[in-house]
Amino acid sequence: MGTLSFGATVSLDGYVADANGDFQWSAPSDAVFAAHIERMAAVSTEVLGRKTYALMQYWETYPDDDDHPADDREFARRWRKIEKVVVSSTLTPDEVKAGRDRLVTSLSLDELRRIVDSAPGVVEIFGPTVAAPAIRAGMVDEFQFFVVPKVVGGGLRALPDDVRLNLRLVAHKIYDGVAHLRYVAR
């Protein structure tokens, strides 16, 4: 039985993308990228939306040779091992490319529970839009935030506006001014 985790890189004011949809301000330093690689060791399954799936396709074909940075190769190796559940009503099964990936046209809370219950490790729900129903339902066991010291003033919020959570900080670390905060639900 797995556990459900939601993680995001966020601005100090709580956004994953600014009002124009830009998230380049959140590009990780080498130290933050290394923390993501380490974090991924426990992840067996990713639940993600169409846009995030398209963005992460880059790692599916990343070259595994000495001409490319070792950390990038390791991230790609770990990413390719993870089972992906793509939530999209517009993609077709032919557009979900990798053999371990599957498409669901909508994600009910019951389906998400089945995914988590059958996972051998951490199920990471990737993206605030896909994660919002699970966060509202209190299904998320762990929250991991990489807080970037920038204020973007608006955009796509990491957490839904209409939710209240009682969390306990279980770990924190600072990387190049970015705070990595791990919380568990109480």
Rank of each mutant, 00 (worst) to 15 (best):
G2K: 00
G2L: 06
T3L: 11
L4Q: 04
S5N: 03
S5I: 02
F6N: 04
G7I: 03
A8H: 07
T9H: 07
V10C: 10
V10D: 05
S11G: 08
S11T: 09
S11N: 08
S11L: 03
L12V: 11
G14P: 06
G14F: 05
V16Q: 08
V16F: 08
A17Y: 01
A19H: 06
A19N: 06
N20S: 14
G21M: 03
D22G: 01
F23N: 08
F23S: 09
Q24K: 00
W25S: 04
W25A: 02
P28C: 10
D30M: 03
V32I: 10
F33A: 15
F33T: 05
A34Q: 15
A35M: 06
A35S: 15
A35H: 14
A35Y: 08
H36P: 03
H36T: 14
I37T: 13
I37K: 10
I37Y: 08
E38C: 06
R39N: 14
R39E: 15
V43Y: 01
S44L: 01
T45V: 15
T45R: 09
E46M: 12
V47F: 06
L48A: 04
L48F: 03
L48M: 15
G49M: 07
G49W: 02
G49D: 04
G49I: 03
T52P: 00
T52D: 12
Y53L: 05
A54Q: 14
L55H: 08
Q57H: 08
Q57A: 11
Y58H: 14
Y58R: 12
W59R: 03
E60D: 15
T61L: 09
Y62E: 09
P63G: 13
P63A: 12
D64M: 08
D64N: 12
D64F: 00
D65G: 14
D66G: 03
H68K: 13
H68E: 15
H68R: 14
P69D: 15
D71G: 02
R73N: 02
E74L: 12
A76R: 04
A76Q: 07
A76F: 04
R77G: 12
W79G: 00
R80L: 09
K81D: 15
I82M: 10
K84H: 11
K84W: 10
V86S: 01
V86Q: 02
V87Y: 01
V87G: 04
V87M: 02
S88E: 12
S89C: 02
P93M: 05
P93W: 05
P93F: 05
E95V: 00
E95F: 05
V96L: 05
A98L: 07
G99D: 15
G99C: 02
